[in-house]
């Protein structure tokens, strides 16, 4: 395994909670979904419930399949930002921005790996890569053949829990999106309030702390693909350095750390502790996702002090976020 570099000791500043006076933010209100978005969602929901068959090692991939793969993208001798993916799940239909990608991927049999080149189109969204040649290494790990039904197939709609006809299905999807947008608006408001308080922090975040934050994220993502295989140490190191030097990622990481400092100061100054309801809600939500009862989740977490501490931290931070939200004024901007 390649060694990762640029690790330095750092000390985070101790801060006092910034003033919460006049904590007022604006957030953009959600827009109604378009008909196309509803149709796309329907396509995905039917796809998830459609008949399927896992392809065997060596079997050819076909259009319409669902593929899980690891990907490494290189262009101009550099590992491309966002081009390294671990466990990416891709539907084998035309990729709007990567013409030819699916066709090339179809040539790699199930549970094997391959490398191919593509010339990125002139209107590629990342302007610096437009018209350039990119090389893709793809490890195809699992493939499913999917029998995608017609969008108005009554039996398929019912199997997906969308009612017996297309009208009811679309209404159900619109309601689902409405609920998601409501939740997203509340999350956006929370993010914006945290941003506003973090912006009031005057202390600088040490560069080494930002490095460490990003190094850990890299370890959990790109490193999963690049380490432990035959990629050269230099390529792996470049991937890490690109991650550490991305100005946008550094800004996001520094901001996260500032938010953490704010919440730490708030918790300390106000002696906050999560209520039993907050921790129970967290466990309930997670238990549903994992497929166990809330009690089973609690017991599993209780057996591992590290996990228990993480859940307790999450409850504590949620309590702190709620504290800030209750003192903020949020204006929702409409179009």
């Amino acid at each position: 395994m390649a060694e990762v570099s640029r690790r330095e000791a750092y000390k985070l500043p101790r801060i006092e909670l910034p003033s919460l006076e006049g904590l007022k933010v604006q957030v953009a209100g959600p827009r109604l979904p378009t008909a196309d978005e509803l149709i796309e969602r329907l396509h995905q929901k039917l796809r998830a419930e459609a008949p399927h068959r896992e392809r065997k090692p060596g079997e050819a991939i076909c259009l319409g399949d669902e593929v899980e793969c690891d990907i490494v993208t290189v262009a101009d001798g550099r590992v491309v930002s966002g081009g390294v993916r671990h466990g990416a799940r891709l539907e084998m239909r035309e990729f709007v921005h990567l013409p030819g990608f699916v066709e090339e991927l179809l040539k790699i049999p199930t549970f094997t790996a391959g490398t191919f080149e593509l010339t990125l189109p002139d209107d590629y969204p990342a302007a610096d890569l437009a018209g350039r040649t990119a090389t893709f290494y793809v490890e195809v790990r699992r493939v499913f053949e999917v029998a995608q039904p017609e969008l108005d197939d009554s039996a398929a709609l019912q199997a997906a829990g969308l009612g017996e006809d297309i009208d009811k299905a679309m209404e159900a999807i619109a309601a689902e999106i409405d609920e998601e947008q409501g939740r997203e608006l509340l999350v956006l408001a929370s993010q914006t309030v945290l941003d506003a308080v973090a912006d009031r922090v005057t202390e600088e975040v040490p560069a080494a702390a930002v490095d460490e934050e990003l190094r850990q994220l890299w370890q959990q993502t790109e490193a999963l693909v690049l380490q432990g295989r035959d990629f050269s140490k230099e390529l792996v190191e470049q991937s890490l350095n690109r991650f550490l030097d991305d100005p946008e990622l550094r800004a996001q990481a520094a901001h996260r750390i500032k938010v953490g400092l704010v919440l730490g100061a708030l918790i300390s100054e106000q002696n906050l502790a999560p209520s039993p309801e907050v921790v129970r809600d967290l466990l309930e939500t997670a238990a549903e996702g994992v497929g166990v009862s809330t009690e089973e989740a609690r017991e599993a977490v209780a057996r591992d002090p590290v996990q228990a501490q993480t859940v307790a931290f999450s409850g504590l931070y949620q309590t702190a976020v709620e504290y800030l939200m209750s003192r903020a004024e949020v204006e929702v901007l409409e179009d």
Binding site: L12, L194, E212, Q216, R256, V259, V321
Partner: peptide, 10 residues
């Protein structure tokens, strides 16, 4: 909300 999943740094 960029707050909780920072086990070491924050």
């Amino acid at each position: 909300v960029a707050a909780t999943n920072i086990p070491v740094v924050s």
